[in-house]
Simulated scan of single mutants.
Amino acid sequence: MTETILEVRNLTVRFGQIAAVNDVSFTLRRGETLGLVGESGSGKSSASRAILQINRPSSGEVRFCGEDLVSASGASLKALRKRMQMVFQDPRSSLDPRMTVGALLEEPLVIFRIGDRASRKAKVAEMLHLVGLDPAVASRYPHEFSGGQAQRIAIARALILEPELIIADEPVSALDVSIQAQIINLLVKLRAQLNLSMLFIAHDLAVVRHISDRVAVMYLGRVVELADRDRLYGMPAHPYTRALLSAVPVPDPAVEARRRREILSGELPSPGRLPSGCPFRSRCPLHAALGKPEICGKTVPPLLEIAPGQAAACHFAGEVKHQHHQPRMTDEAARA
């Protein structure tokens, strides 16, 4: 996983005076899954839509396999989008209720003029089988399926063009917990089987740990920490990451009894009225513990590497690293 398939540099998305995404940068390697996490309103979905040029970014660069997506348009953008597909949060709203499942899956092939009718029907059957559905369901309509089945259909539609990159925007948050595990396991299997690269967006940290190789944490439109999965969950460097991890229950009484809670004070600031300097300082327990250092109110901390495979946007990330750490969430506990 050394080849970079997606490169995002200084991506900014504005809606009026509000920066939903603010100077976001990261890379995604071929075959890798990058988890993008944060509270509601942190800019995760806005970033994903800007990457695919569904909403055009206000500034910044997005390169897919070296191709500049921001400047692409018309036929060139259409050709690139064939290689990048999205799975949306709510499958029921992303599937046209007037079309059969077969027609929904065949439509991308028709748009890109791939194959004849017989070969397209065969491809539809192949994709339904791949996601664990009977090809016979192709004659049915979306409302006849459960939420989990509908999401499998949405995944099949995203994969039918054989893309290289999948952006999954909270693909399990609208599903029951038992069904969530099935969909996550399906995505893990498909990633390995098809050598997919994936940007996986969620707010459930346990789910993100199970599927991701690296994790980027967003807060109010900015990436505040980016690290390899095990390092982020074992040694989080940003106080916001620590607070998020502390809120995740661990189904192991012995581990749970030893964990320290880090409760954030105050409300999430309005994106239209951010604090000066560090946007997290009004809720930051470290800022208060260190006596409210002046630099936090004056300068926005850049995202800088603090250890191999780990970067954090905090003036005092080293202070966090050298505090005693909570008992780490084990892989077994995260999957439970």
Rank of each mutant, 00 (worst) to 15 (best):
S282Y: 07
S178F: 09
E7T: 02
R259A: 08
V62I: 11
S265M: 11
L104Y: 12
L264R: 06
E7A: 08
I114A: 05
A118M: 09
A216Q: 09
S178Q: 08
P236T: 04
E305R: 08
Q151D: 07
I54K: 02
A312G: 01
G43P: 10
V37F: 00
M99F: 15
L34V: 13
Q323S: 14
N22C: 03
P302H: 08
T27D: 14
I263M: 14
T330L: 11
V101K: 15
V21K: 11
R56C: 09
A79R: 13
N22P: 03
L186N: 09
S48T: 13
K78E: 08
L175C: 08
E107S: 12
Q53A: 09
H325N: 10
F112I: 01
N195K: 12
G66Y: 00
A243R: 10
T12Q: 11
E332R: 14
R231L: 15
R83D: 14
S59K: 13
Q89R: 03
H325W: 07
G272Y: 07
T100W: 14
Y219F: 14
I167F: 06
L104P: 13
A75N: 10
A122K: 13
L290Y: 01
G38I: 04
A202S: 15
Q151P: 13
S25V: 03
S178P: 08
L105I: 12
P97S: 11
V8R: 05
A156E: 13
I211Q: 00
R259V: 06
V188Y: 00
E332P: 06
D252N: 15
K78G: 04
K292E: 14
S93V: 14
R335F: 12
P302G: 08
